[in-house]
Amino acid sequence: MLARRYIYRVIGLLVLLLFVAFFGVPLLWLLLAPTKTDYQLAHQAPLAFGSLGTFIHTFNRVINYQGGLMLTWLKNSAIYSGGGTALALLAAIPAGYGLALTQFIGRRTLLAVTLVVMIMPATALVMPLFLEASAVNLVGTAWAVILPFAFFPFGVYLAYIYFSSTIPKDLLAAARIDGAGEWGVFLHVALPLARPIVALVAFFAFVGDWTNYYLPFVMTYTNSEYPVTVGLQILIGSAPIFSPTASGYAGSEIYRPDLAMATLIGALPILIIFLFAQRTLVKGMLAGATKG
């Protein structure tokens, strides 16, 4: 009896470790690859450590690639994600409040539509959005990326759940009796209490925007417009290892450590956010669909 339980535990632990390897080894590799030269990468053990000097050298190569293209991409990512997140907050927080705590005709319909659009994968709308954006001549501008990012029904739903479950109606009634108008009630009572939900919506919006590939891929045309996700694809295209026909300028080819470094840099903001936001993530996702 006891022996059998012991065996189960050991098997369980082995399975866990197997998956730790599956999820962890690629990340570890990504961290180690830029410490090696392309030659070392191909001939040393995959998880061997090269040198810190090489790491810095690789970093500089990537940052200076084609006159700082990487920085341009990062800047674009920041503009798209930052702008999209800011606008998403501006729309979602009042909307969640309105849906939860005010009464108007069409409220339930709006809520239902929000749910449907929230579950529908955003990617499904990208091509139609492109067709629409090109009809109004927005393609090629930052707005073609930022505006679709601003439309964030999941954020509206999160705010709706938050306002309807954590803010007692009596509190708002008290504010009204104290003489506050509808706008005043929102601004002075609801909003100060909404800080956690603002952070939560911002987190999901920013992470989603930063890692989005398809929308900017369709909406942007040139190197100077790409965010870092799309930029990475350009790098692969200039890496002789994957694209033998790639004809970079002499000395500006992309090698494997460079590619790993670029991937690491591109994901770094999100990695950092993730490291500090695990609890927020759980809370938000569980709030995302709980009913009794």
Binding site: A92, P94, G98, L99, F104, V117, F151, P153, E182, W183
Partner: peptide, 14 residues
């Protein structure tokens, strides 16, 4: 009518 005011931006985006 206040409700419309709060959801206005979102509805336009939607």
């Amino acid at each position: 009518t206040a409700g419309y005011f709060f959801v206005a931006i979102y509805v336009v985006l939607l």
